[in-house]
């Protein structure tokens, strides 16, 4: 369970103080597929960085399964990112000179997983995201955008994180590939009880999540829930 308590993040820009995240509070149950929508510059990515311990809040706290991120030293935050968080970036952020399978193996290497085990799991994950097996050993810069995003998702799943934070996961993809990615995230949430928080400005995508939040000028508000993608129709 994730609890976000009165989260504030401010930046100085000349004489002005900007508050991309302004007193944000919410809770997410384990296994929830949620989305945050908002215009560009509304603070979506900043909020995601705070939840993923990439950045530190000016005030407030994020509590993950009862553990406060605010009180964690840097080493513990790194461990938190390694074990509990999976990031899917809009620009994929894969290591260009490594193969698809090597990229997926990286987080497992950092977690101390033995080589044979991480190779087997990396191949399995790449199959789950439906990457052609012959492309597993292909260098990232020889894969298409959709294929790279699948590798990025596989990498995010490598250490079986409790929370996946996806920043515009379909932003660089065509509609068909984007739909597939959403299906994939939804099934992960449903089948693996993984909490997934997607940041997007794509309302269609947001409509496919369990819970929808809107971020406007740093303030978060929740919108009414919709039927989940892939969920059984009500009787």
């Amino acid at each position: 369970m994730i609890e976000v308590k009165n989260l504030v993040r401010t930046f100085k820009s000349g004489d002005r103080t900007i508050k991309p995240v302004n007193d944000v509070s919410f809770e997410l149950e384990q296994g929830t597929l949620a989305s945050i929508v908002g215009k560009s510059g509304s603070g979506k990515s900043t909020l995601l960085s705070l939840l993923g311990a990439l950045d530190k809040p000016t005030s407030g706290d994020v509590v993950v399964n009862g553990v406060s991120l605010a009180s964690m030293p840097d080493g513990k935050l790194t461990e938190y990112r390694r074990r509990d968080i999976g990031f899917v970036f809009q620009q994929f952020n894969l290591i260009p000179n490594l193969s698809a399978v090597d990229n997926v193996m990286l987080p497992m290497e950092f977690a101390g997983v033995r080589k044979a085990a991480r190779l087997a799991r990396a191949k399995d994950l790449l199959e789950q995201v439906q990457l052609d097996p012959e492309k597993h050993v292909r260098r990232i810069n020889r894969l298409s955008g959709g294929e790279q995003q699948r590798v990025a998702i596989a990498r995010a799943l490598a250490n079986e994180p409790k929370l996946i934070l996806a920043d515009e996961p379909t932003g660089n993809l065509d509609e068909q590939t984007g739909d597939h990615i959403i299906e994939l995230l939804s099934s992960l949430s449903r089948d693996h009880n993984t909490t997934i928080l997607v940041v997007t400005h794509d309302r269609a995508l947001a409509n496919k999540t369990d819970r929808r939040f809107r971020l406007q000028q740093g303030r978060l508000s929740e919108e009414p829930a919709r039927t989940r993608v892939g969920a059984a129709a009500p009787a």
Binding site: G52, L54, G75, T78, E79, R81, R82, R83, I85, F87, F89, N93, L94, I95, L106, P107, F110, A111, R155, N159
Partner: peptide, 10 residues
């Protein structure tokens, strides 16, 4: 930055 984001120790 990416390596750190995915949990690489310093």
């Amino acid at each position: 930055g990416v390596l750190k984001a995915i949990g690489a120790p310093n």
